[in-house]
Write a protein that binds this DNA or RNA. Structure first.
Length: 585
RNA sequence: CGGGGCGUGGCUCAGCCCGGUAGAGCGCUCGGUUCGGGACCGAGAGGUCGUUGGUUCAAAUCCAAUCGCCCCGACCA
């Protein structure tokens, strides 16, 4: 039902309300949420990755924001409203002015000072905290806001799912110590669950990489959909769940046998790929090959060793090496480093110690202890067999680098992993003292020691959440909103407005429901019933009251948009029926 | 940033190869008939064919540049 704080009154008659539905699908929309939000008159694109929210969408957005606000306040959050435009100095202090690169929108004021549009607000909140918080007695604090965030994404896509300008609820916790942070983090975790539950979503919290923002215990809240860009691995049996940028899996023992005492070179003319070597006489199956990838990590050459049938996850490579810029080496860089071309590369005999061109040899954990393997010989058209990793290769670092696949063993029980696509609607993680250290936000403890404030960061993308609900809940006819975030609870469809009796009955019902706090939209347009039914389905209002032919018996139809089930209700009892239904939702 | 595609009334698209008076459906306006799952008939309004330059007697159409948008990849709280 409606609440005083977000009441959105006014005469909600479709004939004068702006809901520009489209009869056909927009040409440039691929994913369901994009297609439906445009077609149902919720959003319009202004430019790539930038959308206008029309009245219906703004109603949904405000409802989502109100749910978030209530749950943040419940755990002691205090709402702020911070600037979107930030001085470069602040971001230089934290080091992110450089780190963010092209993803940050930048501008210059009339005096020539560099400014940036906020991507998140760690810096601004920390700058407030460092000036005003000096004592452990002032902690903990939970501060949050909902503000427009700007990110100059290289490739905006999928409607509201990946944009360059969007509303984010971002919250930050400030504690004296790790124990305090642990508590703040747990509170946020449960608040996030409450928020997504209330939005009617099925979601999965997963372990994740923290990315450029830095931090630990990164947890993403994911909603399963093929429109999502992330892949997550989930074990139904024990509940293990992780982004593939983080996930590990349990693989069967390869059962290697002893090979020769030293690697043997053999000619492999024309062999360039793992596949080629499988089929080559005297070659090896993919899981007995060592794949050697050459990467440039912050301008240094690194060899990345993977099992032949495994795929590298670049985020894992970044996380495990602490690199900022990572890319595959170009053909000429490869030849210069190893003296051979891709297809014949290997790490045997290569050393990262002084003088060499290679500065790091990093290998995936699954190669540990492997013996009698086959790999490139660093001589075109030649390979080595009988390679035992620990004996023959000087690995500098072992790490989990591979991308797990569906069906592989769960790392924490004897179940199996399911890997699927999902969209990230929320992200919480422990920042620790990253920003308080770099920006000098310190407090005195009870013992009189000066310590950096321990921080946490907690974000939710509001419009993305809206789109995720649509992805999660729609059918061929349109959107199906849960009551909690629906733009209206009920739509009253008058089948023929030229019929005085129907019109009057519709108006009366509308007045009655509205007075009772039910958010109703009266479809009083002079359109044929079919058009109105289709539009009602499209915009996704959860219940429809049809004022039509049953009126003669003093009844109207009450239809559930999601189940398509309808019942005839005496017009005098509509409000009661709705009350029961809406409360139950 | 690499690859591909597309810019023609409000929307979805045809016309472009092969240069010669700008089209359809939907939507919109007016009149009439209809009226419970995107009606029908009649009459209308509405377009610098993304932009700039070039070729030509003549350019939506050919050439060049440029801008924008979409998709795939790279990248990404």
């Amino acid at each position: 039902m409606s609440c005083a704080c977000c009441s959105q009154g006014g005469f909600m008659r479709w004939s004068s309300y702006f809901i520009p539905t489209l009869r056909e699908d927009p040409a440039d929309a691929e994913v369901a949420s994009h297609r439906l939000l445009v077609r149902a008159g919720y959003i319009r694109q202004l430019t790539a990755g930038v959308y206008s929210l029309l009245p219906l969408a703004q109603r949904v957005r405000l409802k989502i924001m109100q749910i978030i606000r209530e749950e943040m306040n419940r755990i002691g959050g205090q709402e702020y409203f911070l600037p979107a435009i930030h001085p470069a100095e602040l971001w230089k202090e934290s080091g992110r002015w450089e780190v963010m690169g092209d993803n940050m929108f930048r501008l210059r004021d009339r005096k020539g000072a560099d400014m940036g549009l906020g991507m998140t607000h760690e810096e601004v909140f920390t700058s407030i905290a460092r000036n005003a918080i000096n004592s452990y007695r002032q902690l903990p604090q939970i501060w949050y806001q909902m503000q427009t965030k700007f990110r100059d994404e290289a490739r905006p896509k999928s409607g509201l799912l990946r944009v360059r300008e969007f509303t984010m609820k971002d919250a930050y916790s400030f504690d004296v110590d790790r124990a305090g942070l642990d508590k703040s983090f747990k509170d946020q975790y449960s608040a996030y669950c409450a928020i997504f539950d209330r939005c009617g979503l099925k979601y999965t919290p997963v372990q994740a990489s923290s990315g450029a923002m830095g931090g630990s215990e990164s947890t993403e809240f994911m909603v399963r959909t093929d429109a999502g860009e992330d892949h997550i691995a989930v074990c139904e049996k024990c509940g293990y769940a992780a982004n593939v940028e983080k996930a590990t899996s349990r693989l069967p023992d390869p059962g290697d046998e002893d090979g020769p005492a030293a690697p043997e070179t053999f000619p492999t003319p024309g062999v360039r790929t793992i596949e080629d070597l499988i089929n080559f006489p005297g070659g090896a199956p993919a899981d007995r090959q060592i794949k050697t990838l050459v990467y440039i990590l912050d301008d240094k050459v690194a060899l990345v060793l993977m099992r032949g049938d495994h795929e590298l996850n670049e985020t894992k490579l970044i996380d495990s090496t602490g690199s900022l810029n990572v890319r595959p080496a170009h053909a000429d860089e490869i030849r210069e480093a190893l003296g051979a071309s891709a297809g014949s590369l290997g790490a045997v005999g290569v050393s990262s110690s002084a003088g060499g061109k290679v500065s790091l040899i990093i290998a995936d954990d699954t190669l540990k202890g492997r013996r009698n393997m086959t790999t490139g010989a660093n001589r075109d058209d030649h390979h080595l067999r009988g390679v035992s990793i620990e004996r023959d290769i000087r690995v500098d670092k072992w790490a989990s680098l591979r991308t797990v696949k569906s069906g592989e063993g769960c790392p924490s029980c004897d179940g199996a992993l399911d890997v699927f696509k999902a969209v990230e609607v929320g992200h919480i993680f422990k920042l620790g003292t990253k920003y308080s250290d770099s920006m000098g936000a310190r407090v005195l403890t009870a013992e009189g020691a000066e310590v950096p404030i321990v921080m946490g960061s907690y974000g939710i993308g509001v419009e993305r959440l809206m789109a995720a609900v649509v992805e999660f809940s729609n059918d061929e006819a349109g959107i199906i909103w849960p009551v909690s975030v629906a733009p209206f609870h009920v739509i009253i469809t008058v089948t023929n407005v030229k019929d005085e009796a129907l019109s009057t009955a519709g108006e009366k019902l509308y007045e009655e429901l509205t007075a009772a706090g039910v958010e109703a939209l009266l479809d009083d347009r002079d359109e044929r019933a079919g058009v109105k039914f289709n539009d009602a389905d499209l915009i996704g209002v959860p219940f429809r009251i049809t004022v039509g032919k049953k009126l003669k018996e003093g009844k109207v139809e009450l239809l559930n948009r999601a189940t398509r089930k309808s019942e005839d209700v005496e017009i005098a009892k509509v409000l009661d029926s709705l009350r029961v239904i809406l409360v139950r939702q």
